[in-house]
Each structure stands twice: as C-alpha cells, then as structure tokens.
C-alpha cells in the first residue's frame, strides 16, 4: 500500500501534528513500508471470525450511581500551561 505525500499530510492534519516537508518525505517511505508489511494479514481467512473485544470473559461491573470523588479543581488545573479561576485558558476560538 503506497501512501503518497498528500495522504501523509492529510493524516498528519487529522492527528494534529505539524510536519515539515522533510518529515513528510521520510514518513511517506516509512508508512508505506509498514503498511506493505501488514498487507500479509490479507492471507488470513477471517470470514467467519468474530473480532476480539476482550481478553478475558468478564461482565463489566456496575457501580452505585453516586458521587465518590470531586472538589479537586486546584489539583485539576495545577499542571495546566495556562489557567485562570479554575478554567483552562486557550487561544480565542470565536471572533
């Protein structure tokens, strides 16, 4: 599966990672190589096979619908690059 530079740029945009022209060229080759290699999975007949969704059969547990944690606003914003009055500050998104 060949991934061209336009596709690399589209994927990088979806992943929100800015890439340089040089990186785009390198990634074109590397991603194509890896995707070529995983093509071998096509040899496997999976027609009647269910996808694996869990490793060990176990019903998800339900917990009581109660508040068990909270009132930690200071802790939550403590590591933020920029915060104000317990809000995360981001660049303006609406004009």
């Amino acid at each position: 599966m060949h991934v061209d530079e336009t596709t690399v740029r589209r994927i990088a945009r979806l992943a929100r990672i800015k890439i340089t022209d040089e990186e785009a060229k390198g990634l074109e080759k590397e991603l194509s190589g890896i995707l070529d290699w995983v093509e071998q999975l096509k040899e496997v007949d999976t027609e009647a096979v269910e996808p694996m969704t869990r490793v060990v059969a176990q019903d998800l547990k339900m917990r009581d619908d109660m508040v068990t944690d909270g009132a930690k606003a200071d802790d939550i914003v403590k590591n933020a690059p920029e915060s104000e009055d317990h809000f995360f500050v981001v660049p303006k998104v609406v004009e």
Binding site: A15, T46, E50
Partner: peptide, 29 residues
C-alpha cells in the same frame, strides 16, 4: 509520531474494516 500517524491512518474513514477490524479478528485466531 510515526505510530500516531499509522494509527490515525488505519482508523481513518474507509479503512477501519480493512485494518483494525481485520487485526482484531486475527487476534481472535
């Protein structure tokens, strides 16, 4: 970055069945 981009590619529109779903079926086997 390389792994995030591969992951984004295989999960992107139109490719989910061909890659992720296929891989999860192989995992069952």
């Amino acid at each position: 970055k390389r792994r995030i981009l591969i992951g984004t590619y295989v999960l992107s529109a139109g490719y989910y069945d061909a890659y992720y779903l296929k891989a999860q079926k192989v995992r069952t086997l």
